[in-house]
Amino acid sequence: MEVKSAVQLVNQLQYKPGWTIEAEDNTKRFEGTVTVKFVFPAYHSERNFAEEGYPRFTEGSWAEFRIIVADCDDAELYRRVLGKIMEIELHEAREFLRVLPTYWAPFHPHRVDGMKRWGDSEGDLSYGIV
């Protein structure tokens, strides 16, 4: 697929309310690729907010990924974008799964012990999620 076509197709995608998905040409850095940025609403997942039901919210969380599109048709492009959405959702799920009564998060993706328990590769911080 042409990068220009991929950018147009990705920029027509819609996901959950409050989410934006934007693609741009990334061929100056990596041949046949686009950068896809997701901006989405999210609750602050800090442990001290867990008992209160996570009352703090942000609309400015984001993640950015590079996707190879040179070998895609439209369905494969959409599958790759959805795969990145699933990575974001998995990341969030790992932050919010808590064990009562302490509200410990056994797989928290921002903590070394959580990364190890989940089985992340050593030193792999592949999520561009903020």
Rank of each mutant, 00 (worst) to 15 (best):
N26Y: 15
T27Q: 08
V69S: 06
F65H: 07
K84S: 11
G18K: 04
E76A: 03
A6N: 02
Q14R: 13
P106H: 04
H44N: 09
H44Y: 12
P41L: 07
Y78I: 15
A63T: 01
G83I: 01
S5H: 13
P55W: 11
E2Q: 12
G53L: 05
V3C: 06
G32K: 02
V34R: 10
M1R: 02
E24R: 15
V10R: 07
R98Y: 07
L90S: 11
D124R: 13
P41F: 12
G123C: 11
F57L: 13
L13D: 02
R47L: 08
A93E: 03
K4S: 15
L82H: 05
L82N: 09
S61R: 15
V99Y: 07
W104P: 00
L77S: 06
V69M: 07
L13A: 06
F49G: 01
R47F: 01
K116V: 15
E22M: 08
S121V: 06
A93R: 12
H110F: 04
W104Y: 10
D74A: 14
D74Q: 15
E2M: 11
W62H: 12
I85R: 04
K116A: 14
F96I: 01
E31I: 08
E89V: 01
V3P: 01
K4T: 13
F57S: 06
L125H: 15
F96K: 12
V99K: 13
D71I: 05
E59G: 14
V3W: 09
Q14T: 15
A6G: 09
E31W: 08
Y127V: 00
L13R: 14
W19T: 05
G114Q: 02
T35K: 14
P106W: 09
F38R: 13
I85N: 00
F38K: 07
L82T: 09
A6L: 05
E22L: 07
R66H: 02
P109S: 06
K116S: 03
G53D: 11
D71Q: 09
W19N: 07
R47S: 08
E87H: 13
F57C: 06
T58S: 15
K28N: 11
G119T: 06
A105Q: 07
L100T: 09
I88W: 08
D113I: 07
W19R: 09
E95Q: 13
S61L: 08
Y54H: 12
K37E: 11
K16Q: 14
L13T: 07
I67G: 05
E59T: 11
Q8Y: 10
Q14D: 05
Y43L: 06
Y54G: 00
V99D: 04
D124H: 10
H108C: 05
T33C: 15
I88H: 06
P109E: 09
I68R: 10
S45Q: 03
E52H: 05
W104Q: 03
V3L: 04
M115Y: 01
A70G: 14
R80A: 02
T102P: 00
E24S: 12
I85G: 00
G119A: 12
P55M: 04
E89F: 01
D71C: 02
A93C: 03
I85D: 00
D124K: 10
H91C: 10
Y43W: 11
T58Y: 12
K16A: 14
Y103H: 12
I21A: 03
E87L: 10
K37T: 14
Q12I: 02
Q12R: 13
